[in-house]
């Protein structure tokens, strides 16, 4: 779950799945390498994705039916496995976003007691 590069932030446990889903929501269909790059770019290179974590996470999402995969060709004509959201995956994004927002709101109250 943890990136080894000290200057970059770790990907928190549980957040990687949501990041993957959101990335796929925006990009449609994407291979593992692409997903990793997009996540890193979206985080403005603050995050570094560990592949030892990414691929099992992709597999888990697929096993749970949130994403599906098929082999295809990349931009530069390389054979690659492409992942895309399923209908269940779309719903899961809504649910997890909600959970996440609630969580950050709670945390915000601790960090900034004046809001409460």
């Amino acid at each position: 779950m943890v990136s080894s590069m000290s200057s970059k932030a770790d990907v928190w446990q549980g957040t990687l799945a949501l990041m993957v889903l959101k990335t796929l929501e925006r990009a449609g269909s994407l291979h593992g390498y692409g997903i990793a790059r997009r996540i890193e770019e979206t985080s403005a290179k603050l995050l570094s994705v560990n592949y030892g974590t990414l691929y099992p996470a992709l597999l888990k999402l697929e096993q749970e039916g949130y994403i599906s995969s098929e082999w295809g060709l990349s931009d530069n004509n390389r054979k690659a496995k492409f992942y895309q959201l399923t209908r269940a995956g779309c719903k899961q994004i809504e649910k997890e976003t909600e959970d996440w927002e609630q969580m950050t709101a709670i945390l915000a109250r601790f960090l900034n007691p004046k809001i409460a």
Binding site: G32, Y33, Y55, N76, R78, A80
Partner: peptide, 17 residues
């Protein structure tokens, strides 16, 4: 074998980039 291929393609794309 399939996963080997997936890693292989991942690394190749990275090299290309």
């Amino acid at each position: 074998k399939e996963f080997d291929e997936e890693i292989e393609s991942h690394v190749q794309m990275h090299i290309d980039d």
